[in-house]
Design a protein around this nucleic acid. Structure first.
Lengths: 357, 357
DNA sequence: CAGCGGCTCGATAGCGCTAACAATCCCGGG
DNA sequence: CCCGGGATTGTTAGCGCTATCGAGCCGCTG
């Protein structure tokens, strides 16, 4: 009897830990019904300006925050997004996760990580996903390039977003960057700096991006009227080790290139290491450019001139697409959208004009 | 009459998209009450073996999966864990996230990323966290070493887990690795290989781990009866750039060290680069060891011998601690536990016995 | 054989929120 | 002055699950 409403409140908090404010409390304080509060919170347009302001004020005063569990239970709309990954580089995954999680928080969506081997049986995988009650799936490379997997996922009615894929699938959302254009732009940059012999270190041929980047490189050369030379195109696989070997081969040429463009930063970093070991300076003797703008690009010295692939932004967009698709229901899910993000060239310290021999 | 409950089902799915199986359906099919199904699902011991088996079977047949939203609404226990990060390295964050998310999925907990500047006002931050309805906070380095922040968080009754902190706070859970012991072990390894002059590249003095690693290095030297030498201890700040400078200084000594132990992998990678650029071989001329086993350790060549800090595992444990604390309620939250994980030495190709001069 | 405690299990009543529909109000036209 | 219709707000009834309490049942003691 010491506190008037203690019994009511203690009863409520008996089960729960936090004494959280509910719609009813807000409604009572604002002199409206809980439904109206709900409408205000959800931005329903059919609420008068006056009411909206009053409710908003009470919400602020009381520090009301909607309970997401109750919300998704009542509305029947929930949002669990699986992120299937196999073995992308740590920095890629990290940036991807940051983007996806940031957007997920805005939609009260949950991101569920799902490790998955590339060779896994698609059917078994789908079963696993259902067991986790996933409504949508985020597919970063290289998984996004597996047509069987994507098809199986779309087949069971899941919203699917392929990020940075080279093989857009029917019914799946895609968020891509113009890899070819970016590679062409970087090559053109080197040409503009005065380079005529530009070596290229290719990526893993099993990933679609590799081909696109090579094509971009060739296109830029062609547009500048520079003859292609097979010896200047070496085959890597996106690993540092392969970059080492490729760069050695390039520098061993009778007439070595004055610039090397690697299809990712790891290989570019390897090229820098090889070049240094040979007593050459970067960029004075050899210009070296990378691709992706991953952590290693700014870790090593000199910092790499590279193409910035906005991974976080792409993950964010993909997540948004999925959240929208889930909220919109089956109809909108059909209208899979293809978004594209802009790349940008990040000029740092690893390239410059060729040495005047 | 072909399907008895067809009408009921269609009515139910009118609102919702997915025709998900509910407890009631399972209960009906198993001939028990919904409550009993709930008990089985939650592993309540007060259910007879026979009933449990029957229900389990039906659950499997129907593919029932509990609805997490309903569950957390009904039980009042929800689990939103904030992950405050400032600017850790991408690979660290990535591994951390993977561990945390994996464990979070097991507890139906949600991880919410919260970017946060180190200088941010603790009070303002706490408000922000409440707005996101966080129940617990995961604090990776370097944020975990901010006493004000931790205190403020614990003060408002949030469960807090400091990961890899050097400053355990009252009332916070901690998950740590024995940095000092690991540094000592690595140093001892180099000594065992025959090295007597071992250079050390220190980390950012503002982070607690730096001091611990330096202490471990010194302890191992002392235990081996090797005199310490100030010139062999250089000051870095965990960045590649600082590793470059420190390594140059070390190799410029009148009698350069035969081995270099860097307090993290980035600086060790820089040391490898400098050594190579001087025309020296690693490990033949200089052994180089790192710390953390981040991506760069296996990216560069030779791959670094380093200390593996099980970041994912630590994040996993921290998340588990938090999930437990939230589920347990206020009483258990008091009993903040301090877990410790084992480090391990990863021997790769960057170290070996000193050259017989 | 009444009575008691332990073991299972079911009925009830919400958790906080929102769809769907009902009610109300205000306005101008008939 | 009454009525239809748009704009605004309230009422009802759950969403799927679980906390709580009580009912039924057993074997046991006195």
């Amino acid at each position: 009897m010491i506190e008037g409403d203690a019994s009511g409140e203690s009863r409520r908090t008996a089960r729960r830990g936090g004494a959280s404010v509910t719609v009813s409390q807000v409604a009572h304080a604002a002199g409206v019904s809980p439904m109206t509060v709900s409408r205000v919170v959800n931005g329903d347009p059919r609420v008068s300006q006056a009411t909206r302001e009053k409710v908003d004020e009470v919400i602020r005063d009381l520090g009301y925050v909607p309970n997401p569990a109750a919300r998704s239970l009542a509305s029947g709309r929930q949002c669990r997004i699986g992120l299937l990954y196999s073995n992308p580089s740590a920095s890629y995954l990290s940036e991807f996760l940051v983007g996806a999680l940031a957007e997920a928080a805005r939609h009260d969506a949950q991101i569920i990580l799902e490790q998955c081997e590339a060779e896994a049986d698609a059917a078994a995988l789908v079963g696993q996903l259902r067991r986790h009650r996933l409504d949508a799936v985020l597919l970063p490379p290289p998984l996004c390039d597996d047509p069987q997997l994507v098809e199986a996922l779309v087949g069971v009615g899941m919203a699917v977003a392929q990020v940075a894929t080279g093989r857009p699938a029917e019914g799946a959302h895609t968020v891509c960057m113009d890899d070819e254009g970016a590679a062409a732009a970087m090559t053109a940059r080197l040409i503009a700096l005065g380079h005529r012999r530009i070596g290229f270190i290719g990526g893993d041929p099993r990933q679609a991006s590799s081909q696109l980047r090579l094509t971009g490189y060739r296109r830029a050369l062609a547009e500048a009227g520079i003859a292609m030379e097979a010896a200047l195109e070496t085959a890597g696989d996106y690993s540092y080790r392969s970059g080492l070997a490729s760069c050695e081969a390039l520098l061993d040429l009778a007439v070595p290139p004055t610039a090397i463009f690697a299809a990712n930063d790891d290989m570019a970093a390897a090229a820098v290491a090889v070049t240094h070991r040979r007593g050459l300076d970067v960029p004075r003797d050899v210009s070296i450019c990378g691709f992706d703008d991953t952590a290693i690009a700014t870790t090593i010295w000199p910092e790499l001139t590279t193409v910035r692939q906005p991974v976080a932004e792409m993950a964010r967009m993909a997540t948004q697409l999925l959240a929208g698709a889930i909220a919109g229901g089956a109809e909108e899910r059909q209208a899979a959208s293809d978004e594209s993000v802009a790349f940008s060239l990040i000029a740092r310290d690893s390239d410059g004009p060729p040495q005047r021999a």
